[in-house]
Amino acid sequence: VATASGDNTAKLWNLKGSEIATLKHQDAFTNVVFSPDGKTVATASYDNTAKLWNLKGSELATLKHQDRVTKVVFSPDGQTVATASGDNTAKLWNLKGSEIATLKHQS
Rank of each mutant, 00 (worst) to 15 (best):
A90T: 09
A28K: 11
R68C: 08
W93D: 00
T49F: 02
T49A: 05
T49Y: 06
S35A: 04
A42D: 03
L60K: 02
N54S: 05
A61M: 07
E59S: 09
F34C: 12
L55R: 08
T49D: 01
V81H: 05
K91S: 00
N54A: 09
L103V: 08
W53F: 09
V72R: 04
K96C: 03
A82Y: 03
P36W: 07
L95N: 01
H25M: 05
S35N: 08
D27F: 10
T102S: 08
E59P: 07
V69F: 06
N54Q: 10
L63Y: 11
Q66T: 12
Y46E: 14
T89H: 01
R68Q: 09
P36R: 07
T30Y: 06
K91L: 01
S98L: 02
P76I: 00
G57A: 04
T62I: 14
L95K: 03
V32Q: 07
H65A: 10
L55I: 02
D37M: 07
W53N: 05
T70P: 01
P76H: 05
G97C: 08
K71Y: 09
G57F: 00
S75G: 04
L52I: 09
K56M: 07
D77G: 07
E59W: 04
K24Q: 08
I100D: 03
K64E: 15
L103A: 00
T22I: 13
T22K: 11
G97W: 04
A82M: 01
A42L: 06
L55H: 04
K51C: 10
K51N: 11
A42S: 12
E59Y: 00
L95W: 01
T43K: 11
Q66A: 14
N88S: 13
V33R: 15
V69D: 12
K51V: 06
L23I: 14
I100N: 02
F34R: 06
A42T: 10
A82R: 01
A50F: 08
L95Q: 04
V32I: 15
E59V: 11
A90S: 12
F29L: 15
A84N: 05
S98K: 09
H65T: 02
G78E: 06
L23P: 09
L63A: 13
S45W: 12
F34T: 13
H25C: 14
Q26W: 11
V73N: 07
A44Y: 04
G86N: 15
N54H: 08
Q26R: 14
V41I: 15
N31T: 13
T83L: 00
S75P: 02
G97V: 07
